[in-house]
């Protein structure tokens, strides 16, 4: 199957003025990536690692310094207008919507911009309104929407023309747990029903875990990791953490196979154990703990994305 995104040696430099001197700064360096239709890819990296620059080159906003990029089989800069019909982009920080108009109007204008026939426009708008639960604020001016409502509206705006490729730049930033959850569920469903390809940048490991089956890590413009999420954990040795609340004060829970005691609070009432997800499971660790003490409550903490990325960076130096 032909790739939906294909880059070869993609490089982008910027000239920055530093007082009187000019410096060349490489934002993306020699990026070679292939994404097949239907994949869901998490594109992660620290701030300034080159994520946004890559997205801008994929969508034809920026011209690569060297290297090639093909998106949906088109050359983004030359075929920008044709590409726009097949790609939907959500920039977490910039809006597609008209601030002073009721939300409904923005959808109407966007349908006109994408020349959707009236029947398609109605069906798609109704579908998105229902699935993203936007009915109650369709008549509200966009500037009065809450962040969670606005983000759902932005996603709907980017998906109105049913694009093959959806790029989301920090889609869940600043959202509360429930809004995040809703948005992720929607994206999973959209992908399942339409076979949409997803590419998202995020700082939220939850986004990656729930939405993506492949992860790209970019560090200082260079691709540092390309593979699945489990492999990322393996590659970095990131551990999951089991936190337990016990019924009574207990000694430190040391000596559990493949687990490591991290900390105890309040005379051992609350303890945290790190374990390697490759060597054991949360259930096994939990069972071992339950043999030694009565457990009232527990949570499993996933490895922090920042931590994973930091480990990758550290390993590369």
């Amino acid at each position: 199957m032909s790739a939906i995104v294909e880059t070869d040696g993609l490089t982008r430099e910027f000239t920055v003025r530093d007082g009187l001197r000019r410096r060349r700064l490489t934002a993306v360096e020699d990026l070679t990536v292939r994404i097949s239709p239907g994949e869901a890819v998490g594109y992660i990296g620290a701030n300034g690692a080159g994520k946004s620059t890559t997205i801008k080159m994929l969508t034809g906003i920026l011209v690569p310094t060297t290297g090639t990029v093909t998106t949906c089989g088109l050359r983004p800069v030359k075929d920008r207008r044709r590409l726009a019909r097949q790609v939907g982009v959500v920039f977490g920080q910039r809006s597609q919507l008209w601030w002073d108009l009721p939300l409904r109007e923005s959808f109407r204008i966007l349908a006109a911009i994408h020349s959707l026939p009236a029947a398609v426009e109605r069906a798609r708008t109704d579908e998105l309104v229902e699935r993203l639960e936007m009915a109650e604020f369709l008549g509200t001016p966009v500037r009065q929407l809450s962040l969670g409502q606005r983000m759902r509206a932005e996603v709907a705006a980017a998906l109105l023309h049913a694009p093959r490729l959806v790029i989301l730049d920090e889609p869940t930033i600043g959202l509360d747990v429930l809004s995040k959850q809703r948005l992720r569920e929607f994206l999973v469903a959209e992908r399942r029903t339409r076979g949409t390809t997803l590419l998202l940048t995020t700082h939220d490991m939850g986004d990656v875990e729930r939405l993506c089956d492949r992860v790209l890590v970019i560090d200082h413009g260079r691709l540092a990791y390309d593979g699945d999420l489990a492999g990322l954990g393996r590659a970095t040795g990131a551990e999951r953490v089991l936190a337990v609340d016990l019924a009574g004060p207990s000694a430190d829970l040391t000596g559990i196979p493949a687990a490591r005691h991290l900390s105890s609070e309040a005379h051992g009432l609350r303890q945290r154990l790190a374990f390697d997800a490759e060597a054991t499971t949360a259930a096994r660790v939990f069972a071992a703990v339950a043999e030694r003490a009565e457990v009232l409550d527990f949570t499993v903490e996933e490895p922090d994305i920042e931590d994973v990325v930091r480990r990758i960076y550290a390993a590369r130096r």
Binding site: K56, T59, G60, I61, R80, R81, R82, A84, R85, V87, G88, V89, F91, Q93, R94, S95, Q96, I113, H114, S115
Partner: peptide, 14 residues
């Protein structure tokens, strides 16, 4: 600054 120009790039008009 508002990113409106980038949004224009994502639409199929000149």
């Amino acid at each position: 600054r508002a990113g409106t120009l980038d949004v224009f790039y994502l639409r199929p008009q000149p």
